[in-house]
Amino acid sequence: MSLFARAASAAAVTLCAALLLGTTSPGFAQEVPSAHVSTLNALALPQVPMTPTAPDAAAAAPQARFQPAVIQTVQPLLTATPAVVQDDADEGYDSLADAVADQSAGLDDAEMRCLAAGVYFESKGEPLTGQLAVAQTIINRTKSGRFPKSICGVLTQAGQFSFVRGGNVPTAEGRAGWQTAVAVAKVAANDLWDGAADKALYFHARRVSPGWRATKVAAIGNHVFYR
């Protein structure tokens, strides 16, 4: 072999050795594309879904707003209490005597003085029912349209009441039975007790018989009452 051939062979051997060392040395390692590496990793690792977390998610999320519960109060059904209606004016007292006893003694009204005088002079000494009937008869005349409209006018009408003299109604203040007459007058005027002769317009003593063509209403005490 010639010198030139030997030199060529040695160069070839050296080159082969260099190439062999380059493939195994870290300094000459071949680069693998990153896409391939990602693919390999994805295949090698299990797929776990990951929910991306927004920055400060707790602050960004809308806060739940709680409305106060509306509680409706149901009112219990109220049972209407029927009004107490007094059919008779005397229901406020157990008896006429109680109604009379409940009246005050004073008289400040001229009409009431006339009514009390009519009760006293026409029925003093009579039972309370008889005195009340006299008072009611006098009051009924004021409402009838056939007699004067005032109590004093009814008493002073000519020829009607014998105790009236010269158109003047006498007084009996201070006499026995006067306070009872006052109380009976108040009971009648305020309609506090229903009497047996509440529609009467006339009366006369039992001892006389005038022969009136009127309807008899009642006979109480010493009087007979008509309408």
Rank of each mutant, 00 (worst) to 15 (best):
T215S: 11
E122M: 02
V184A: 03
T14N: 02
D108T: 13
A59N: 07
A101S: 13
A64V: 15
Q75N: 09
I151C: 01
P82K: 08
Q47D: 13
T180Y: 06
D90T: 12
N140L: 02
G106Y: 07
A110E: 14
T137G: 01
A44I: 03
F121M: 05
L19M: 15
R227S: 07
A185W: 04
M1E: 10
A172W: 07
S123W: 04
S150A: 10
T215C: 00
K199V: 12
M1L: 11
A8D: 06
Y93M: 12
P33T: 03
I220A: 02
R65Q: 10
V182T: 11
A57N: 01
G221L: 07
P210M: 11
V74I: 14
Q75A: 13
A189C: 02
V164G: 02
F225D: 01
A176C: 00
F147C: 11
L192K: 14
I138C: 04
Y226A: 01
A61L: 09
F203N: 04
A10D: 10
T51F: 12
R207Q: 06
T24A: 15
Q72R: 09
Q30K: 09
Q30L: 12
Y93R: 04
V187D: 09
K124G: 01
E173P: 00
I139D: 05
D102A: 15
Q67R: 11
A5Y: 02
R65N: 04
S209N: 15
A18E: 03
C16S: 12
V187G: 03
D198N: 14
R146K: 15
L192Y: 06
F66K: 05
P46C: 11
A89T: 05
Y93W: 15
E91Q: 14
N168I: 09
T24W: 10
S209M: 07
F121W: 13
A57P: 15
G153N: 01
Q136N: 11
V48W: 06
P26K: 03
M1V: 13
L40C: 10
V182C: 09
M112R: 12
A116R: 06
A59T: 09
A158V: 08
N222Q: 13
L107F: 01
P68L: 09
A99D: 08
A57R: 05
A183Q: 12
A61R: 11
C16T: 15
